[in-house]
Design a protein around this nucleic acid. Structure first.
Lengths: 193, 193
DNA sequence: CGTCTATTTGAATGTACTCAAAAGCGGTGG
DNA sequence: CCACCGCTTTTGAGTACATTCAAATAGACG
């Protein structure tokens, strides 16, 4: 069963009983997604909570000038989706695109809510997950307002060693909030020193 | 009872029964904090979850050059604290300082955990709170990597009308990630146009 | 081998920072 | 009521960081 990875993932946060495991298996549907395919596009309402089993995604925003800005990447055992749109049923301003052939698990909104009402333990699990995600986002905000592009790039390499060799520098630049040209200059400077 | 505001706050997310209300009242202790007083300092372990009843706080980071960077403000009905330090029992790199005379409610870590184990409903409440906070943080990251200082400042005014007339421009500049001098120039330009 | 995309280069420009100093503003005491 | 203090905001000149645009180079893949 492909949901095994997810069940183990939950188990590490809080052990599940058999009923809970069965429900996870029932609710999370496997789906294959090809490189360059979208699982969410601007204007749509985000209807799924997505867990990545294999592959890699990016979630990005297109600004009024048509430029893309990567908000998040997701590889194995990460979650991705527009939480705001998902919870408020409002059209998303974000896009989620596979940057590798990928396999994901998805629960739709009804089932996800059922998970919370029928198996309260998942409230705790997702509370912990959200809290962890918050801590990560806070660190990123802090970095964006206090560090230079060079520092942010070096920190990115250190924090996500599994990521930087799978993702193009164009995408990393977009995540860091700089142009690819400038990231190239930064990299050149780092190699020299 | 000073906890009334907090109980109502929880109630708006998910109605509490009498036992739950009683426990909130028991667990959250009122505390007065004077302007310029700290409720968390760098190096300490964050031991409290803090809810602001009255007043105003800022949470900031001091970088290696000695410069302060505001990560968050908190006024009435907001939470503040270093979640990372709180959950992992690790020394915080952040400071939380009152910028007005304030009144807060605090639960220590044990009691907060008891809240989750004995009254599972709070898992759901805090899950929802964390998710909302995440959405806000994501928007801020997005802005930082995609907008100019002027756009960020205008958005700050629009999003936090209750805040900008209580907080000095020095503090707002630090929150936006620019120098006070540059924010001054931005404001001048806005007035002109 | 050619095609497509990613990366690098360079010059000109714009955005934001640093440092030092001046101006404005709210209180407090004489 | 005014003079002074401390703090915030503004100004300006020089500098550093980052972008734009166009073009060259390098890699990946069928």
């Amino acid at each position: 069963m492909k949901t095994l990875a997810l069940i183990e993932y939950f188990n590490r946060i809080l052990p599940l009983n058999e009923k809970e495991k069965a429900f996870v298996e029932e609710v999370y549907q496997e789906r294959k997604v090809k490189k360059r395919q979208f699982i969410l596009q601007e204007g749509e309402i985000c209807k799924h909570n997505t867990y990545v089993l294999e592959g890699c995604f990016r979630m990005y925003f297109v600004d009024p000038n048509g430029k893309e800005h990567n908000l998040q990447f997701a590889i194995e055992n990460w979650w991705i989706g527009d939480l705001g749109s998902f919870h408020s049923n409002s059209p998303s301003k974000l896009n989620v695109e596979a940057i590798e052939n990928s396999i994901i698990l998805q629960a739709n909104k009804e089932d996800q809510l059922k998970l919370f009402t029928d198996y309260p333990k998942f409230n705790q699990i997702f509370r912990v997950l959200s809290e962890n995600a918050m801590v990560g986002l806070q660190k990123r905000v802090l970095q964006n307002i206090s560090s230079t592009a060079e520092e942010r790039y070096l920190d990115f390499l250190k924090r996500y060693p599994q990521l930087f060799n799978r993702i193009s520098n164009v995408q990393i630049a977009s995540y860091l909030g700089v142009t690819p040209e400038f990231l190239s200059a930064v990299r050149k400077k780092i190699v020299k020193s």
